[in-house]
Design a protein around this nucleic acid. Structure first.
Lengths: 390, 390
DNA sequence: TAACTTTGTTTAATTAAAAAACTATATAAT
DNA sequence: ATTATATAGTTTTTTAATTAAACAAAGTTA
């Protein structure tokens, strides 16, 4: 339990000033004082600290407002860099971002084997490649975040990753020892939701659910502007909602799970007969066929869209969110999915819920997960480094 | 946005000291200092404030620990009283509690009519009866809380109460004007969850879901020790989970809602043929028959229990809670429901979830909702009154 | 050119916590 | 009994932060 003292006060105010600069840059000390309600003298003192910490810089005089010209300040997004990795089932997507979340380098490596050692090597290769590309900066690489499709506990252990066939994998410790940097391992949907919160459709939204639909279905839950991880870190397994109590067996042990009817797998099943080789069916080629107005593919999208809608009504009934964001591979399917989903909403949602939220699709394309993973590092850097802690 | 200053620090610390006294009473100043990490001098100063505010009192010397005897302090639970009301479909249950949540008076009035005016009159009758019974105290009645079975928005308006056949009812304004006291209207399940958090099975549990099962099914969601209300205040409508996509029509508009299979209504339907008059079937007489080992009733309990289990697996998959608490009328059915529910958990939950939570039944019997409603007033009193605000 | 504005710093006042010194009151050992 | 030691709680002093007020610097406007 933390008690109140002067250091707490300073931490709070310093963080307010830094956030204000980040959001409203370029901005003067006087304007920060007006916007935040902090006294001019307090702002000057805190800005001096931030200048010394290299997180804020002066950029000369601005335009006069009828008196002395203000000194404009801006957030030094190049004071450090973060690495974010989206560890997929058949790829490793890595990005290097500045402290503002802008991508300054990226690399996408295919994964041939899902063997633990082989994947670890590939991840290290990506990390080292990005590290080399990082420009010189005051703080260097501030951390590494990795999004993984699986159950991750509160200590960052990968408990279970079905599609990678992993159990109890300690990637976090491995990378921390090797690179001596803060490492964050998080579930792919949780990382993606974080990416949307900071840099996408979740900005300014306090309560939203990011639903990642790809090979599986998972969710990242934002409540009161915070990612909700769950009692042991494994919240958001909405793919295993029971939608059909006597439906098909799912490999999770349950029957009739939502993701059996609403994921890439469901699409493939419905359309496999259109292709000579089942292995060849990908979301990309289905999109191609849908654009040619192939009726069977359009029907498959519509049917899968209906099931997605049914699961989303469950989410809406329980969370009453301000927004639902659909991410991962299905983020590209908006033009085919929005109609059936909204049809189901009309049919199945009580009227008080119907206009209580908006339905969006991911704004960061394939980068939500990697961006969110990088952002874990950036936030921890801000809250624990000597920069903001007194 | 609140900035940091000395008043904030004092508020935080005063609240810490008060909470410590509430939880560990009787306790000395020295012990508070050790437990909280606050300096002895700081504790003395804050305790002086709380003594002046009548929230804390001295009760003479305690036993020596090898030196000067400590002056023991205790929380003055009689400094004020709160009214909590559980507004049911056919009853109004009112309680008067002290600031500790102990019930000092109660009254249970049957509701003959669900007409808005008639119900308002009955509620006022209950409030006035309880007010008269309140002992003289420093702060008097600090507020009135009412739990209602329906959708309540963030302003306390009753948007929709199906079983009362109400729409857009402004009970809050009505009572505030009449009694000039803070009034809190909240959904019955949210109020119940709050009751369990403060005084029942939710104490010390940060993340739990209270599932109220009676005529309908609703949930109160506690996340990070806070009640989550949702974007517009109507979260927790788990009764309208789609469990059977092609099931029976629900009056909410959807088909195959969970509460059609798992509430009192489902029980009545399965057992109505055992009674001459369908109106006579109540949970109470089913309990009586179950105790006589009536096979048909036992089977009904078992089947309903299975469906409850299915809905709970959905809740567990999405929230990964530390605890599930079953409340309202079904809280009395533990001996018949626990088995089928846990059977379903074994069948349908992935192993990582199976031991991640405990299943409990309400500890406050029929008072969860009224207690939680009263507690809304008490907490607001502590956080906004001159007592704790500097 | 004088009057007024705006920006940002400096100085003094205020407040709350914490450390240190101190008083009061015990217990325990001799 | 007396002395040493330990604990409880208050008083005094120190420290660190915000804020208000005064001020200096640098503009604009009439």
């Amino acid at each position: 339990m933390r008690t109140g003292d002067q250091t707490l006060v300073k931490q709070i105010n310093k963080s307010i000033v830094l956030t204000t600069v980040q959001q409203k840059s370029p901005i003067s000390r006087a304007q920060i004082s007006k916007d935040t309600g902090l006294n001019k003298a307090t702002v000057s003192s805190l800005v001096a600290d931030l200048l010394e910490g290299k997180l804020v810089e002066e950029m000369g005089a601005g335009l006069s407002n009828g008196g002395r010209k203000p000194t404009m300040l801006f957030f030094n997004n190049k004071a450090g860099y973060a690495i974010g990795i989206d560890l997929g089932v058949n790829y490793v997507l890595g990005i290097l971002t500045d402290l503002q979340g802008s991508i300054v380098a990226k690399i996408n490596e295919p994964l041939i084997s899902i063997d633990e050692g082989a994947v670890f090597n590939k991840v290290e290769e990506v990390i080292e490649d990005l590290t080399e590309q990082a420009p010189k900066s005051a703080y260097g690489i501030v951390g590494i975040g990795v999004g993984v499709p699986g159950l991750i506990d509160n200590e960052g252990t990968i408990l279970f990753a079905p599609n990678l066939e992993w159990k109890n994998v300690h990637l976090k410790q491995h990378l921390e020892r090797k690179y001596e940097l803060p490492v964050f391992i998080e579930n792919e949907a949780k990382a993606g939701s974080h990416g949307e919160k900071r840099y996408g459709a979740g900005q300014g939204v306090s309560n939203f659910i990011y639903v990642s639909i790809g090979i599986g279905v998972g969710a990242g839950i934002f409540i009161n502007d915070q990612l909700y991880k769950g009692g042991s870190g494994i919240s958001g397994e909405v793919g295993h909602f029971t939608i059909e109590p006597n439906g098909r067996k799912c490999r999770c042990g349950n029957k009739g799970c939502w993701e059996l009817y609403s994921s890439e797998g469901a699409l493939v099943e419905k359309t496999a007969h259109l292709f000579s080789d089942r292995e060849e069916v990908t979301t990309e080629c289905l999109i191609a066929k849908a654009k040619e107005r192939n009726l069977e593919v359009l029907n498959a999208f519509d049917q899968v869209g209906e099931y997605i809608g049914i699961g989303l009504t469950n989410i809406i009934n329980i969370f009453n969110p301000e927004k639902i964001i659909i991410g991962n591979r299905f983020a590209e399917l908006e033009q085919w999915l929005r109609n059936p989903i909204e049809r189901v909403f009309q049919q199945r949602l009580h009227e008080e819920f119907r206009d209580s939220f908006t339905l969006s699709f991911s704004e960061n394309s394939i980068y939500s997960c990697a961006l969110g993973s990088a952002a874990f590092s950036i936030e921890t850097f801000f809250s624990t480094s000597r920069v903001t802690v007194v």
